[in-house]
């Protein structure tokens, strides 16, 4: 099928903080097959694996705009506030962020920690 070819993985995305891995099929701000949506950061994107709809995409992650680490969009690893920031960088510069974000971070009891069960590097 024509669509499937477009979703051929380009490589494997791996979060440098939590080691989450997933194949990605697009990097950029305009995911394939969508016209009306623009991503506000250079993102690693895959086809949404949980729906048969071939046009659905899923943003896996992007680079931290401070330290350029490749991080996933999971709330344990990064946040987006007009740009992507990895949580370690947010922690370091927490005062640069508005109160709401600081609140949010505090609410997370474990502000930033690698997941308890550190998976080995295998897929």
């Amino acid at each position: 099928m024509a669509h499937e070819a477009e979703h051929q993985p380009l490589g494997v995305f791996e979060c440098q903080l939590c080691s989450l891995t997933a194949p990605y099929s697009y990097v950029g701000q305009k995911p394939p097959n969508t016209q009306s949506i623009i991503l506000l950061e250079e993102s690693f994107v895959t086809k949404d694996p949980f729906t048969p709809d071939k046009d659905r995409f899923l943003v896996l992650g992007s680079r931290c705009s401070v330290c350029s680490r490749l991080v996933c969009v999971g709330p344990e690893c990064s946040l987006f506030y007009s740009k992507r920031f990895c949580l370690p960088c947010v922690q370091e510069n927490v005062h640069a962020f508005p109160q709401e974000i600081r609140h949010d971070l505090e609410k997370r009891k474990v502000p930033w920690k690698r997941p308890a069960s550190q998976p080995s590097t295998q897929a």
Partner: peptide, 25 residues
């Protein structure tokens, strides 16, 4: 203003919309 450029131009006024990394035309 923040010394790190990436942090320098963060929106001053918080809006939950700034936390969304996509935009709809």
């Amino acid at each position: 203003k923040h010394s790190i450029p990436a942090l320098a131009d963060l929106p001053r006024t918080y809006d939950p919309r700034y936390r969304i990394n996509l935009s709809v035309l």
